[in-house]
């Protein structure tokens, strides 16, 4: 069986988040009064916080995950690690906090103030060098898999609102998806953000389910098939999920973005010892 390796301190998992920082990310995302850049940035910061929460024990944070975040488009044609130059252990994430915010969380009807860490700020600047971002992701994944041959395979979650401006990333994505640990091949999840008030298409099985949109087809092709052990978890949020579907949401509004991120990470941390 694949995608069933237990995640432990000796055998951690790896998440890599890819974040589009191109100019078009400054437009508002459907379902929110904020820009796509702001909501995507906030969603990843929340996921990192949630991952820390999962790994937190009374004595501190246990190193169940390595984490990397790559931003692309902050400068023309450039992609780079946002938190660090390469993936770091979740135990080191707190050393890279940019600032802490006070946020209000409602628990059982009671509003309490919590400290919320911010690792990076929203950026919406230039073009969309997605290929450059996947190139960095490939290097990170190759290096990590070399040291964690029996671990749960790395999961890459890419958040973008458009097409790559530095070439077709599909071939690179195929190469990445063929990198494997003993437990399975690397997974690529894609979240295609929308500024239009149209129905999202989540976890499609075949290309025919997509509208005429070349970027959608590219991201669909780049996305991994959702492994069978993860389908049940994805079904909790998306009832249409079937075996053989792709880890892709087209025209994602804020709600879909959060759900996709949540599922993408939950399927993995369900394997924590």
């Amino acid at each position: 069986m694949t995608y069933e390796a237990e995640i432990s301190r000796r055998s951690p998992g790896l998440f890599i988040f890819l974040l589009d920082q191109s100019r078009s990310m400054s437009r508002k995302i459907t379902g929110s009064g904020h820009s796509k850049a702001m909501e995507a940035c906030d969603a990843i910061n929340k996921q990192l916080n949630e991952l820390i929460n999962r790994c937190t024990k009374s004595e501190g944070i246990r190193p169940y995950f390595d984490i990397g975040v790559i931003g692309y488009g902050y400068r023309s044609g450039e992609a780079r690690g946002l938190i660090s130059e390469k993936p770091i252990s979740i135990t080191e994430l707190e050393n890279h906090i940019l600032r802490m915010e006070k946020r209000t969380e409602v628990i059982d009807g009671e509003a309490i103030e919590i400290e919320f860490p911010i690792w990076f700020e929203p950026v919406a600047s230039f073009d969309t060098p997605m290929k450059g971002a996947f190139k960095i992701a490939k290097e990170w994944v190759q290096s990590w898999v070399g040291e964690h041959a029996s671990s749960f395979p790395p999961v890459i979650i890419n958040i973008s609102d458009g097409g790559s401006t530095d070439g077709d990333p599909n071939e690179l994505a195929e190469e990445i998806k063929n990198i494997e640990t003993d437990d399975g091949k690397v997974l690529i999840w894609n979240c295609h953000l929308s500024e239009k008030n149209e129905r999202p298409i989540s976890f499609p099985k075949i290309e025919l389910e997509l509208p005429e949109d070349k970027h959608a087809r590219t991201l669909f092709e780049m996305s991994s098939e959702v492994p069978d052990p993860m389908v049940a978890i994805a079904k909790e949020e998306f009832s249409n999920v079937e075996n053989g579907c792709k880890a892709y949401v087209f025209n994602a509004n804020l709600e879909e973005l959060i759900k996709l991120l949540d599922i993408g990470t939950r399927v993995v941390y369900n394997r924590v010892e």
Binding site: I52, N53, T56, S58, G60, I61, E94, M100, I107, I112, I114, E115, P117
Partner: peptide
């Protein structure tokens, strides 16, 4: 610490 506090309240 902040992360322990955020979790322990539950």
């Amino acid at each position: 610490k902040w992360n322990v506090k955020n979790k322990a309240v539950r």
